[in-house]
Amino acid sequence: MNETAVTVQGFTKRYGAFTAVDGISLTVRRGEIFGLLGPNGAGKTSTLECLEGIRRGDGGRLDVLGVDPARHPRRLRDLIGVQLQVGGLPADMTPREAMRFFAAYHDVAPRGDLLQRLGLGAKVDTPYRQLSTGQQRRLALALAVAHQPPVVLLDEPTAGLDVESRAELHALMAELRDAGTALILATHDMAEAEKMSDRIAILLRGKIVAEGTPREITAAGAGLTKVSVRTERGLLLAEGYEPPAVVSRAAQDEYAIYFSADPAPTVAALLARLKERDDRLIDLRVERPSLEERFLEITNGGAA
């Protein structure tokens, strides 16, 4: 599954004097979910639209399984599946009609089973305008994957979905990945990106400022681990004890909180201190830095 599905090399997209994407390079392999993260205006959508063949880039190279999206849009059609944006279908079109319509243009059989699986079984004959936002998103995903494309581009696929639908979509994404599909996931949802993505690129002002696995990206930051301790007598709070490797500390709701550069000696010292002072541990929590914290660190700081 190491075959490269998508190559973006020195890619640039400008709108007049504004450079939306500034010479980025990345590769996406078959059988992986690649998260594309960044604040609004970072260049995610421009990159996706050029990969979809909707827009032309101004420099660099795009390659989807050997096809240049701008030069061979017809050959691209069966290679990619794109989750349509909300409102991207005629208001009077029903899910059943939409499935038949797009399946016919891709020359494949309609996938009624996908509509059932994504919870649209009872809505197959409901006009698109009467579907909820969540139902429209689920329909968009069903249409994107119905022709079993080797590359799938998803833009905020679970925004506005309830917990159950979200889990079903995540299961489907994982299933596609396991079947060898390359998925590019543009999202603002850091928990989703961290959970689903095998690798991630963070875009900021048109440039990639961090790339790697979620673990690599979070580890590359300041990397402070949060250690929260609550004890029976609250001595840690009262004493202002400072264990080793701690960079800063705080107090919140009877918890003494330590931000540690190395949690092992910090926790060991805290437990020893409690035993020494004859206080009893009620709760101890160790939380590694999340992707969201790292993302905020990068986007607020402007560098990796």
């Binding site: 979809e52 063949g53 909707i54 849009p73 017809r74 059609r77 069966d78 990619i80 794109v82 349509l84 944006q85 409102g87 991207g88 279908l89 005629p90 797009f102 243009y105 891709h106 249409l143």
Partner: peptide, 16 residues
Amino acid sequence: ESREAGIYRSFKINGV
């Protein structure tokens, strides 16, 4: 109205 709603983008992506 279809062009304004982005429906033709969807069509283009799917080879219409």
